[in-house]
Design a protein around this nucleic acid. Structure first.
Length: 501
RNA sequence: GCCUCCAUCGUCUAGGGGACCAGGACGCAACCCUUUCAAGGUUAAAACGUGAGUUCGAAUCUCACUGGAGGUGCCA
């Protein structure tokens, strides 16, 4: 069905009031996917009508976050199109014009109630255990009187006039019919006293003017969906297909992430803010794959998706309406999978900054050599300097205790180091091809287990008990340094031996 | 409180009346592979919230309850 969909026009319409989080990223992604899939257009619109909440760098971070994920738009603040401007703060007059139309039609009215009166009204309603709603005080002021009061300089807002009886039913593409009693829909303010339109008006006007065919947005808009429907009806416009996505819950599944919890996450190497994932060592491919699957699925077994795959396979009828708990463990899994899927050169390029951030100075040649042997061992790019940083250190500092293998004495281990030295010193070079066969012969000769002999070597050469494959590592380090380190280790073991006798 | 939405393994999910004593994935456990750590392979444990109803037959449809979430702003 979706395969034959006509080109859509969709939009992602965030407000620059904070950082772009996972949920917003997913909403943007789904919009983008639907546009690409149908050969339609994806529009980025900035909803910045609330000047009080405006945050200076938010818009830039928003765009950076989307770009990092691999999402680009056809029209937006930085990409003029025929439906612009794409910042609501630049469209003030447009909204006023349409508000005026609503007033003339009798679908909206001027309201002169002071915030104080409204506050008192609300308190009384709460005392009487009624649900808070506008009491209709200014609903029936004649247009003539209203204009006089405005001319006299009285402050006012514009409210949409909702019907008092009956029900309103709106269709959502993934939830079916959503029916609400009209009496529960308030006479919402659509233009503030400062002359700025509110979301309910601005978004409906823009969606219409920008030719939006499908609105994919968060479920927090479900309660006001009937209002939006009424506004569109009042103008006589064509209604878009509504698609309300579920929310993301915290990992426990109990409620959504609080500000405090979001801030704490970073200590564990996670975040819910899109722009943090890069520095945390996550691949945009992995994050995209991960969030795509929280609320959408393809079939009962496919889970690896590139952006290209997603564009090909995405469809709105596989969207899931229920809330999803964020599972960071699964992100780690996806990151590993996508790291392993990367060409070596690409991965080498991506881990370089992480080495540099830890103070290493990786040369590209060495980097290219170590990348294949750590590729299946790192979960985040950030792990790379941790497990392979020693390749760029001049000296390693093994612990004597680590050099002594389980079930062996220091003396025996010293002997292993010394004999290994002799074997390796005679070779033209050390690599899995040249060196390993000889060393295995030595293992045989000594009557030991491979793990014991290689264990001594591993700690001696890399300075650690856990490392990438031994012979590959020694090849990269080079014969001279390897021999020097083995010699040092042997000396340490001998010293330990005499000290403890 | 009121309104609305949601409800399958711990988590993400497949499932849209018989194909399901419910499939996949993460995680967890065991085993195999193995010079460490990973990766990979095999196996195991693990779910249809409760109660009615419709039907020859319900995870799938209806209702109630329960639980969870969202909304209730001159925010978006």
């Amino acid at each position: 069905m979706t395969n034959e969909m006509k080109p859509v026009r969709v939009r992602f319409a965030p407000s620059p009031t904070g950082r772009l989080h996972l949920g917003g990223g997913r909403t943007a992604l789904y919009n983008y996917l639907l546009a690409k899939k149908t050969g339609g257009k994806f529009i980025l619109r900035i909803e910045d009508t609330d000047r009080k909440r405006y945050i200076e760098n938010a818009e830039q971070e928003l765009m950076d976050g989307l770009h990092w994920l691999g999402i680009d738009w056809d029209e937006g603040p930085d990409k003029p199109g025929e439906f612009g401007p794409y910042r609501q703060s630049e469209r003030k007059e447009i909204y006023l014009k349409y508000a005026e139309q609503l007033i003339k039609q009798g679908d909206a009215f001027y309201c002169f109630c002071t915030p104080e009166r409204l506050h008192r009204m609300k308190e009384e309603q709460e005392k009487r255990k009624e649900f808070p709603h506008y009491d209709g005080h200014c609903r029936d002021i004649s247009l003539e009187d209203a204009r006089k009061r405005i001319a006299a300089g009285e402050p006012y807002v514009i409210r949409f006039k909702t019907p008092k009886g009956g029900v309103t039913t709106v269709h959502d593409a993934i939830r079916g019919e959503i029916t609400v009693e009209n009496r529960t829909i308030d006479d919402y303010i659509i233009v503030k006293s400062d002359g700025w339109a509110l979301y309910h008006l601005a978004a409906m006007v823009d969606d219409h003017l920008m030719g939006i065919t499908h609105v994919i947005r968060g479920s927090e808009w479900i309660p006001t969906l009937p209002l939006h429907h009424m506004i569109i009806q009042a103008f006589g416009w064509e209604e878009p297909v509504w698609i309300h996505l579920s929310v993301f819950l915290k990992p426990s599944g109990k409620g959504k992430m609080s500000k405090r919890e979001s801030a704490d996450l970073i200590k564990d190497g996670y975040s819910i803010f899109l722009t943090d994932f890069k520095d945390l060592g996550y691949l945009p491919e992995a994050v995209t794959n991960w969030i795509a699957l929280m609320g959408w699925s393809y079939d009962d077994h496919t889970e690896f998706f590139t952006m290209e795959d997603l564009i090909k396979d995405f469809s709105i009828d596989h969207l899931n309406p229920s809330p999803a708990a964020i599972n960071f463990t699964k992100l780690d899994y996806f990151n590993g999978v996508h790291i392993r899927a990367l060409p070596v050169e690409d991965l080498a390029h991506r881990i370089k900054p992480f080495f540099e951030a830890k103070g290493y100075h990786p040369d590209d040649e060495t980097l290219l050599k170590i990348t294949p042997i750590i590729q299946e061992r790192i979960v985040t790019l950030d792990d790379a300097p941790e497990i392979a940083g020693f390749f760029f250190e001049d000296h390693v500092t093994p612990q004597t205790e680590d050099l002594i293998q389980k079930g062996l004495t220091a003396e025996k281990c010293a002997e292993i180091a010394e004999k290994s030295y002799q074997v390796l010193a005679d070779l033209p070079e050390i690599s899995p091809r040249i060196g390993e066969p000889e060393m295995r012969a030595l293992v045989e000769e000594l009557g030991l287990k491979p793990a014991q002999v290689f264990g001594v070597l591993r700690v001696a050469v890399t300075g650690r008990k856990v490392s990438p494959p031994l012979f590959e590592s020694m090849e990269i380090i080079g014969k001279d340094i390897v021999l020097e380190r083995i010699k040092t280790a042997a000396k340490m073991l001998r010293e330990y031996q005499s000290r403890n006798n």
